[in-house]
């Protein structure tokens, strides 16, 4: 039993590190064939390493904090019955919180559907979860600058809301149409 528990993560680590070793070997081979490029490649990689190192630990701490403090139940409770502008804002807010990958969001969305939450809120929540996440915005701020980050953030929020509302219309419309043909068929 104990052995099993220990084996698993070790296998996972090997699986994670193998591609890194391959990349490293390819880089070493390339750089020894073309020594003239060494300086440029190493300098670029080093600069990105430093930029990443100054921000990644903080981002990870934020994600850890929010994944523990904000529970799935909380999201479902608040998003389940709100609608209108309040619903939209809450959907964006909960989606943007630094918690987990999309794999976590789909089950939450599925519970929301069963609870009768509005389609638009679910779509907005999922899209915000995918692309308006706070850690992502921080990386964007760091690597692409405040102008780029703010412009894309505002545009994304606007279009995610439009998308949520229009997909809701399309689904309602097609459900109604399906209902009609079924009714006329009877």
């Amino acid at each position: 039993m104990k052995n099993n528990v220990r084996e698993k993560p070790r296998k996972g680590i090997i699986k994670d590190i193998a591609p890194l070793l391959v990349t490293l070997i390819i880089a070493i081979i390339l750089l020894s064939i073309f020594p003239a490029r060494q300086e440029a490649v190493l300098k670029i990689s080093w600069d990105f390493f430093i930029e990443m190192g100054t921000i990644l630990p903080a981002v990870m701490i934020l994600m850890g904090l929010f994944s523990v403090w904000v529970s799935k139940e909380m999201v479902v409770k608040y998003l389940g019955k709100t609608s209108g502008i309040k619903g939209i804002s809450l959907a964006i807010f909960f989606g943007a919180l630094p918690t987990g990958s999309l794999y976590v969001a789909f089950p939450v969305a599925s519970v929301l559907i069963k609870k009768g939450a509005r389609t638009s809120n679910i779509i907005i929540f999922l899209s915000a979860w995918a692309c308006i996440k706070i850690p992502q915005e921080m990386m964007e701020l760091q690597f692409l600058g405040p102008k780029f980050m703010v412009a894309r953030l505002i545009l994304t929020i606007i279009f995610v809301v439009i998308m949520g509302l229009s997909i809701e219309r399309i689904i309602e419309w097609s459900d109604k149409k399906a209902g009609k043909t079924r009714a006329s068929g009877l």
Binding site: V41, I44, F48, M52, L56, M63, V68
Partner: peptide
């Protein structure tokens, strides 16, 4: 604990991307 775990989980791919960008 979650933060440390996810940091080490993402670290290999971070290093891969850093090397890749250099190349």
């Amino acid at each position: 604990l979650v933060a440390v775990k996810s940091f080490f989980r993402i670290l290999p791919i971070v290093l891969i991307i850093i090397i890749f960008i250099g190349l």
